[in-house]
Simulated assay, not measured.
Amino acid sequence: MAISKQYLKTRPVCKVTFTVPAKEAEKVAVVGDFNNWKANKASSLKKLKNGSFKGTLELPKESTFEFKYIIDGNYVNEAEADGFKWNDYAGGENALLVL
């Protein structure tokens, strides 16, 4: 799994690209504070020919978000996240994205 960040000079946003290798998966989405933890069309990642899933979101600079991937209905953390934070509601850690 991987995250790449591209900070825009002209706007106060960062383009964040999420890449998830999941050849056997049917659906992958990224959910978090930035979209009220809702898996929808905007949060769905597109399956590429190599079997990985990829998608880009524009998020506000100078922000920190908790997030997870949903891979075929299972919540999965990003191993290369900027950090992890315990979440009592979920009873586990969420990945952190620091912009």
Rank of each mutant, 00 (worst) to 15 (best):
E93A: 12
V20S: 03
K38E: 15
L99E: 10
F67S: 00
G83V: 05
I3H: 00
G83K: 01
E58S: 15
N35F: 04
N94T: 08
P60M: 14
F65Q: 03
G32Y: 02
D88W: 07
Y69N: 02
N94R: 06
A25N: 01
K46R: 13
E58T: 08
E93K: 13
G55K: 05
S63W: 04
W86S: 07
K49V: 09
S44M: 12
L59A: 09
W86I: 08
V28N: 02
G51A: 12
K41E: 14
P21V: 05
E58L: 12
V16K: 01
E80R: 12
L96C: 10
G83T: 11
K47H: 05
D72W: 05
V20I: 13
K46L: 10
L45V: 07
T56D: 06
I71H: 00
N40L: 02
A39W: 00
S4Q: 14
Y7D: 07
K5D: 02
M1R: 04
A90Y: 15
G91C: 10
K23H: 08
F34Y: 11
N77P: 06
K85L: 13
N40G: 14
K5G: 08
T56S: 15
D72K: 10
I70Y: 02
N77V: 12
N87M: 07
K85A: 14
L48E: 14
E58M: 11
K54T: 15
G92P: 03
K54E: 14
V98Q: 13
